[in-house]
Design a protein around this nucleic acid. Structure first.
Lengths: 269, 269
DNA sequence: TTGCTCCTCACGTCACGTGAGGTGGC
DNA sequence: TTGCTCCTCACGTCACGTGAGGTGGC
């Protein structure tokens, strides 16, 4: 006969846990001293304790363990219980996989944006590679592009592999009736749903400027980049591009002062 | 201003949840009617509710959400919180992956054993393929083989790919001082630790009999299979094999009446 | 007396859900 | 009056862990 402390050391279950299992009737002691209330366990309980401990490590609920112990003594008999439990575990596994994926996406995106912010905010020239995009062309006001991005996101979410960008086909700024195209970089596997076109956007030499701040102050950055282009006598190729490196964010509306937009103007040689 | 019911429909959060968040101070209503106690929400609360709901979908604890909402309004600011949360989620993910793996192992093993039991218990002849094994040779009593199996299991657990088997080098039954070898089938990648040898066990033509029941009744089945062998004048090649298709089980000690052991005797041609 | 082991009982955890019993306005 | 919406308050969930306060034997 073992005291609860000794039995705890034998089984690796805490004294509190053993008392709890005793109260629940799951693992009753061999006897209880009627005077002191002391619980005493014997060797025959070790096996039962071991089974409970092992099933608990697999996070089988106590109610299921009680069922298993009530009617069976063989692994094969519990097969059904284990299969049902496996389904429970698979469901949780899938849930956490989904959560981990969303978290990874947010963290990656934010980290990239953060890395960008440490750059200097000077006009620079660089080479753009070609990029495959899903695109929706629109005429109207610029703030209507949000709906288009959302639509591409819903239709092709899994294929998106980069930051949203806007192509401007106008050569001047237009309040309304502007001609532009909302685009998302997508993987090769993406197939175009109706109303969304998928094509390759050619690369080329471009002049680029990072704009930090709200969208309604983009004008200032346009002024800077266009002066640079004119000073050097470059020839502008339309459409020009705006890449939204950091906008309202996946969770928070974000602080517009920290929005980050790259203006890209392709230039002829 | 919205009543709690209206606000619930807007945000997708239950009325009970909204009341709970209000009591916790996480999402206080815009105002509370002092007479009726009615909670009223305005548009400014929608965003906060949406943030809470989204973070809760990622299973961020309410305490962390409160911290996030207290000091920040930008995704980048919460990056640290999200990274820490990601670590939490990864830990749970790994835990459930481990559980799923153990469950799969048990279920597969039990299903195979179950499928075996439906066979007839007649002596049959069949061809054995070669199998790669990890082995510990011993002299002593048969019941000492358990320790050897456990040792192989601990050292090479990940590589084991089949049921344990015992090779008998004696031509007669010995109570003590028997000469036998405990083996586990292993994958090619397994590397031999000290005291365990890894080699290929050759295949060949064999006579086989399934024994159902406790180990101390193996004698009866040996009698049957040996009579079969002698009747046909086959020549026995040592070592003979016992494959433990179903023994005490991974969780339960199991019912010895349902133990399943295959006796395999290789025969010369 | 001190230290150790055991006991019971109440409460906390985490984020709500489930009633019970009651109110107020159409 | 009936039906609807809102309220508070208490309790349940799941498997224990954390004390507080007390006992019994060396």
């Amino acid at each position: 006969m073992y005291s609860i402390g000794e039995f705890s050391r034998i089984t690796g279950l805490t004294v509190k846990t053993l008392r709890f299992y005793a109260d629940e009737g799951l693992l009753p002691p061999a006897c209880i001293d009627p005077d002191t209330g002391y619980r005493y366990y014997d060797d025959s309980r070790i096996d039962r304790a071991r089974i409970i401990a092992q099933l608990r490590e697999l996070e089988v609920p106590l109610a299921v363990i009680a069922e298993i112990l009530a009617g069976h003594e063989d692994d094969a008999d519990v097969l059904g219980h284990l299969v049902r439990h496996q389904a429970r575990i698979e469901a949780r596994l899938q849930r956490y996989r989904d959560i981990a994926q969303v978290l990874q996406r947010i963290i990656t995106s934010e980290s990239e944006a953060k890395a960008m912010t440490t750059g200097d905010f000077q006009v620079q020239e660089k080479q753009l590679g070609p990029v495959r995009i899903a695109a929706v062309r629109m005429q109207g006001r610029y703030d209507e592009c949000g709906a288009a991005f959302a639509r591409i996101g819903r239709a092709l979410g899994r294929f998106i592999c980069g930051k949203p960008l806007l192509l401007h086909y106008d050569t001047e700024y237009k309040e309304s009736d502007a001609d532009f195209e909302a685009c998302m970089p997508v993987r090769d596997a993406a197939v175009a749903p109706t109303g969304i076109s998928i094509r390759e956007l050619a690369g080329g030499r471009c002049v680029s400027l990072l704009h930090k701040g709200p969208y309604d102050q983009l004008g200032r950055s346009y002024e800077r980049i266009l002066r640079y282009v004119h000073d050097r006598g470059y020839k502008i190729e339309t459409p020009t591009r705006e890449v939204y490196l950091k906008g309202p964010g996946l969770i928070f509306r974000g602080n517009p002062k920290r929005y980050l937009t790259e203006i890209q103007i392709l230039i002829g040689s």
